[in-house]
Amino acid sequence: MSPPLIAYANVSKTFDGTRVIAVDDVSLDVAEGEFVAIVGGSGSGKTTLLRLANRLIEADAGSITIEGDDVRSVDPILLRRRIGYVFQSGGLFPHLTVAGNIGITPKLLGTAPAEISARVDELLDLVRLDRAPYRDRLPHELSGGQRQRVGVARALAARPRIVLMDEPFGALDPLTRDALGDDFRELHGKLGLTTVMITHDMTEAILLADRIAVMRGGKLLAQGTPAELSESGDAYVGELLRTPRRQAERLGALLPREGAA
């Protein structure tokens, strides 16, 4: 098996001296091309774990390697430019147009304007936004779903191999969320990305991810495919799986497949 593209080894992070243990001795490997979802309650350390990967935060202990490099040995600015990051609320720059937002990382990398412009059009197609009406809009002129599409396009602009997403679809209505999730999963496959996505919604994680990591109180409780997790004896994992299970049962009963009866 090829070496993991992202590897956490015994990583810990505390805040406020040692009062808040946000991430507690976590080890996690993500293989190339994999789609991993991190699931857990609020405050369980998901965001902190993600931010450690592109050094928005520095780890206290343990090591993290990205594409084979220990993150401590590379320039954090350059590291961030080669990792796509999608922020929870989009994190779009309110004073820049859609095109300006999408093209920001290529611009920082010194790409020629004409090339950036072509890339922006390509990305708008990729995230299914019409070029003409959206290119020059400001973020506040977009719907929540459109904003997240722009956020995804921005993360992909510099052709990263890795995309990190912090509850990217969390604030959207269920229909939009579904559509965006499916679209992104397709992009993940098409572009050969390696994706780590945080979500507090187990159903979303099961539907989109290859593998799920469950966090609680800073610790990595369990990890595995949905099938592997369902075999876990851990009470908390069981509790997390109960909701999607019940939903599936009820939906199955309420919406019998045509001709299945």
Binding site: L56, L78, F87, F93
Partner: peptide, 9 residues
């Protein structure tokens, strides 16, 4: 927004 600025490199 500050975090996003940092995040995009």
């Amino acid at each position: 927004i500050l975090e996003a600025a940092q995040g995009v490199g």
